[in-house]
């Protein structure tokens, strides 16, 4: 389980304020919020890239707040994927395994290529891939190290509408197949509210998880409350 308690951080003029979040093992949680609301900052705190000013982050009961990113066992997929352009597809996927000197490097890389359906492209260079393929390679690279949690920062932003639908389906399948815990941040209200995942709202550096507050926020933001939420689910 991932537990974030009273997390606060100031970054220039912006501040994350007293954020509390609980994500159960195997859950796919979505944090929804407008651009600049603090979603990426929260993800980077969980990943260990930013150190919060106060608060606590726990993973499976262990306090990881002071741990550097390399000791948290987290899969992180940034918005622009940041695939390493000097490496091929399979070298990108096996990067974390090589750093960790994993014994089953080749088998694990092949399994990840199969999982995302890119076995034919294993020797391709990164710039030869489409945006959708890059997203899948980034997912495979993050999943290869068998992370405790997968952090996805706006994973569909750079995709066209057809690719978005396909990738959403792929992500659902990968989640079902691996059972990995996912925290996924996005500003795509429409796409996310139609999914079956747990949703929290990030607004101006604060996280809103209370259902009535979420409904109120969405009513103000979208002008309507999605059917699933109207029923109280």
């Amino acid at each position: 389980m991932i537990r974030v308690e009273n997390l606060s951080m100031r970054l220039g003029n912006f501040a994350l304020t007293d954020v509390n979040l609980r994500v159960q093992r195997g859950e796919h949680s979505i944090i929804l919020g407008p651009i600049g609301s603090g979603k990426t900052t929260l993800l980077k705190c969980i990943a260990g890239i930013y150190r919060p000013d106060s608060g606590r982050i726990e993973m499976d009961g262990e306090d990881v707040t002071e741990l550097p990113p390399e000791r948290r066992n987290i899969g992180y997929v940034p918005q622009d994927y940041r695939l390493f352009p000097h490496l091929t597809v399979s070298e990108n996927i096996s990067f974390g395994l090589r750093v960790r000197r994993s014994g089953n490097l080749e088998d694990r890389t092949r399994a990840m290529l199969d999982l995302v359906g890119l076995s034919d492209l294993s020797r391709q260079c990164i710039k030869c891939l489409s945006e959708g393929q890059k997203q899948l390679v980034a997912l495979a690279r993050a999943l290869a190290i068998q992370p405790k949690v997968l952090l996805l920062d706006e994973p569909f932003t750079r995709l066209d509408s057809t690719a978005k639908v396909r990738l959403r389906r792929e992500l659902r399948r990968i989640h079902e197949q691996t059972g990995v815990t996912i925290i996924h941040v996005t500003h795509d209200f429409e796409g996310s509210l139609n999914s079956r995942n747990r949703v929290a709202i990030m607004n101006d550096g604060r996280l809103v998880q209370d259902l009535s507050e979420i409904k109120k926020y969405l009513d103000e933001k979208l002008g309507y409350i999605p059917i699933d939420l109207r029923a109280g689910g």
Binding site: I49, F95, V99
Partner: peptide
């Protein structure tokens, strides 16, 4: 961010 990703992967 390239280095941040590398660090989450174990570097």
């Amino acid at each position: 961010e390239y280095e941040s990703v590398a660090r989450t992967l174990g570097c």
